[in-house]
Design a protein around this nucleic acid. Sequence first.
DNA 1: CTGAAAGCGCTTACAG
DNA 2: CTGAAAGCGCTTACAG
Lengths: 340, 340
Amino acid sequence: MPVTLKDIAAEAGVSPATVSNVVNGVSARVSSGTRERILRIVERHGYVPSAPARSLAAKSSRLVGLLVPAADRDSLTINPHTAGVVGMLERELRRHDYHLMLRGIARPAEVTEALRSWRLDGAVLLGFHDAEIDRLKRRAVGEVVLVAMDTYAENPLALRVRSDDHEGARLAAAHLLGLGHRRIAFAGPESSATGVVRQRHEGFRRAFADAGAAWDEELRFTVDTTHAAGREAGTRIAAAGATAVVATADVLAIGIMEGLAAAGRSVPGDVSVVGYDDADIASYATPKLTTVAQDLRAKAAVTVRLLLDRLAGREAPAAAVTLPVELVRRGTTAAPRAFS
Amino acid sequence: MPVTLKDIAAEAGVSPATVSNVVNGVSARVSSGTRERILRIVERHGYVPSAPARSLAAKSSRLVGLLVPAADRDSLTINPHTAGVVGMLERELRRHDYHLMLRGIARPAEVTEALRSWRLDGAVLLGFHDAEIDRLKRRAVGEVVLVAMDTYAENPLALRVRSDDHEGARLAAAHLLGLGHRRIAFAGPESSATGVVRQRHEGFRRAFADAGAAWDEELRFTVDTTHAAGREAGTRIAAAGATAVVATADVLAIGIMEGLAAAGRSVPGDVSVVGYDDADIASYATPKLTTVAQDLRAKAAVTVRLLLDRLAGREAPAAAVTLPVELVRRGTTAAPRAFS
DNA sequence: CTGAAAGCGCTTACAG
DNA sequence: CTGAAAGCGCTTACAG
């Protein structure tokens, strides 16, 4: 039988309303004498307010959801980038005294259910296709503040945070072009589903245009963002005679490196590889992976700031927030053989 | 203004109690005619029951917390093993229609607050020291069902799930001894804080005893479970003249490999390395890491089953559940130079 | 098979 | 500065 607000009030000889004010720090409404007295009783009993009761009575739950697409039997954190975001977001929210509810979404209808059943104050959508974001209706969202990460959807119901995908891939390609590569493969998921991949692919081609070089469309490898898919793509990339490859994720790049090795190609001797994200695994690889770094910590911080600003009624930017990226040169890129 | 139970009841011309019974599938109490009618109205309005209201009125929240120690400014998922557990647990809970609340714990008092404020039905404690588990009091825990993972604490307030740490390290050491190694380093955190490390260290020494070999205590390297700490330890291990090393985590092993390389040692040519966990990163490393695999999926499944069994009032094992481990031989172990 | 009533533990105007 | 009262959206015995 945990102690309740009412118990505290009875013991202090005041009304529940007064205890409520003290517990919530509405000090203007309570004399410092009663405040101290109540606080002592609270302390002694180890009173913890009931969050469900608060959510019900107040308009706020101090709860933020992180929604991530996941097939029924899949784990969310197989993707290192997702795992990183989960951790960073939890940390940012905790700093602001909010709680994180993590929820895999197998079917579109679950989004509504997740958003509404817990009266979430806000929710972060990670890894959804642009079209899925665009399909969200006010009716499904309710008053929940939404931040979609890494999306190019246009739905005004969601705030948007992303990093500069176009520039990231441009940097990667420009780096390789500068080293003398011309047969550069681009490996990543289909562009149609997400603007992130489309933007990266465009940035990649922009580097070619800037360099006055032509790009062979046959070097576009459509592949899932997994190590296994990367490995398989690596052998195909080797067979295609590419001297370099830009992958849309580190885990994919590392898979490709393995495929290249299986095909008898050395990295960066025969083929240069550039990843994307600068996840921890990028520096665990041998050689260490050259990659486009995005600042996950900043991304999480901005996401939470947008969320809290909007919750506080402050104006939030209608446009998407785009964070800068940076090329991190490590051990997987070098001049092509012909140049050395 | 989202639609409520009351709205549905009014529209159907029945009492809220009846709608409640229908929504909760208590079909024995409602005629199939009214049930169908109500279900149609629920469907049409996209009614989603309020979880806070349910938690408040009922005894159950269908909410399970995952509590992980984390300094104020730290992210939880820097540790690949933690990231894996987060994903697996979310998936298991989702299958059973429970929700996951993820919570980093910076100070011991936060455990109570986390457990009680949301009226969690259950909570999983991951990565706590045995002593911290043992210090938990009934008063702090309340009615919350607790499962502590990877602990050798004796607190009866917590159910326990772990893998066979003693056997895992014994297998690792036996493998290396069988290859002819004798100067084998053991690298991991201090044994005093967690039984997991102590058990692994004992299993490691048991292999020596079984082989009738002596182990040089100087080859115990106390080191945090991070890549950076591993790298630093790797150079010391090289300097100590070890021909092999057993690390208590894959991420640590990979760091050690880097340190060994920095010291001019090849793996497995000069030094063999065995990791622990068989996290994804184990197969991303070059060469692929020989490691002790624990079945994370099974661990998460057992954790959730224990939790739900206990919630359903079924008997749960008082003893800890210990899951089997397996040695996965890959590319980082070989006979020592002198033998080849 | 169905309903009226109380209650879960809070917050929020509104009075005083 | 403090309290009485209503209400948040459900569930749960208890009657009928």
